[in-house]
Design a protein around this nucleic acid. Sequence first.
DNA 1: CTTGTTTTTTGCCTTATGGCAAAAAACGGA
DNA 2: TCCGTTTTTTGCCATAAGGCAAAAAACAAG
Lengths: 188, 188
Amino acid sequence: MDRLIALFESILPISDSDKVLIIQNTYKETVEKGEKYCEQGQTCKKMGFVLEGVFKVVRTNANGDDFIQYFTNEGHFAVALESFTNKTPSEEYIEALTKCTLITLTIGKYELLEKAVPNFPKIISRIKEKALLEKYLLKSEMFVDDAQTKYNKLVQRQPSIIQRIPQSQIASFLGITPYTLSRIRRVK
Amino acid sequence: MDRLIALFESILPISDSDKVLIIQNTYKETVEKGEKYCEQGQTCKKMGFVLEGVFKVVRTNANGDDFIQYFTNEGHFAVALESFTNKTPSEEYIEALTKCTLITLTIGKYELLEKAVPNFPKIISRIKEKALLEKYLLKSEMFVDDAQTKYNKLVQRQPSIIQRIPQSQIASFLGITPYTLSRIRRVK
DNA sequence: CTTGTTTTTTGCCTTATGGCAAAAAACGGA
DNA sequence: TCCGTTTTTTGCCATAAGGCAAAAAACAAG
């Protein structure tokens, strides 16, 4: 819980009474491996600050193929950004790849805190913007890379994830086949 | 000019006096083909609503190779988002691929309007968020596509651009070689 | 621990794209 | 309009990655 408050305060200060308000309006939640935190087609009504575990955020293309967009682990938010912000049905789903615990903030409480805590809107909008930019830069940077380079970059950026999730999931994220990933890792 | 106001008002209303204020604090600018609107390494101090023409937004990787991130044409903003928002040196540069005209809003006037026009912060933050999300989705969607599919998607999304800029620039954006692009277009 | 299931690895071949070099075409300035 | 320059096209071959199928390894449930 302190970690979440610390993240907020790294952006803008929050009064002690407001901190209490934030704590009162969030709750700790556990999601088992394989369970979904957010469903495709439904409006995403909560965002969760991950304390432990790894989620995958997945999109389905026109052919019905799934593609992992990114992994969300400790210190980041599990949320279908577009859906949560615009209150539209989510085009992506979020599923736990390991047992996960997170601090959940529902849309209702979110709107309450938005009004009650002075810096809250700016803090959240800042976090959302930073998260989106990060995701964009990652995709963008890997866009022109070959399989080996993409894999190296993932290892650099999220080393802890590699050990915890099936290789096939990593391949999906990198946009390569599991065969290719297996061959890349053999050589190393 | 009306187009810019209309865009703003499609998000939230603005009073007539505030519209005048916006008009007074922006100016029309022309950028010749090949000229830069924003330099790499310098802080991006303005954002421009494109009235006519096409810009490219370019990043340089660790090896010094240039990669076009996206094209910005009529109805969109030319701005190095990260640099403008965080007042950090820009990692990308913006260059006109055709003669361009735009409505420029400098960071100083931007901050002035932020205070003076009630809905301005929300409007701008909404526009920025939408723009970034769009760019992310485009990259993300094309991430797993083969060359032909990526090209088709570009033709669908920004058909007007294809006719106006050199093919080599399109290839750079798609992350393929000019040779491959040439071969793709031959078959069509 | 054992057994059935899932995931990963590997051989083998196919396909897509890269990239050099030269020709062809398009462009642009005098 | 002409000529030099730049861009695009194309033949040819090299390389990266895809993908099937079978073996090997890892995992999971009883």
